[in-house]
């Protein structure tokens, strides 16, 4: 990825964020923060060191977690350097 204005399709995005810390938001509003281990075409996700947040509050931790893709609203990558 050269400039920040380069075209970036979903598959490019996923290559970028594999193995990186992400936030996955589900349709029910729950956030999962952890390391993105892998995912497939259904947006099924395997995460490591996952923390579950409901209404912004930490509710549970999972060593490994599988998230079923139909529940996924978005996958958010945090910029390593802000601005």
């Amino acid at each position: 990825m050269s400039g920040s204005t380069a075209k970036r399709n979903p598959s490019d995005f996923l290559k970028q964020v594999l193995g990186r810390p992400v936030v996955v938001k589900l349709n029910n509003g729950t956030d999962y923060r952890g390391t993105l281990a892998c995912l497939d075409g259904y947006m099924n996700i395997a995460m490591e060191q996952t923390e579950e947040y409901v209404d912004g509050k930490l509710k549970a931790k999972y060593g490994d977690a599988f998230l079923r893709g139909n529940n996924v609203l978005y996958i958010c990558a945090q910029k390593t350097v802000k601005k």
Binding site: L26, N28, Y32, T50, L58, K59, A60, K61, Y62, G63, D64, A65, F66, L67, R68, N70, N71
Partner: peptide
């Protein structure tokens, strides 16, 4: 049934508050 599943985790190292 699969469509009711949200998350699956092996409970080793899983601890809930």
């Amino acid at each position: 049934r699969g469509d009711s599943v949200i998350l699956v985790s092996p409970p080793v190292r899983t601890h809930q508050s």
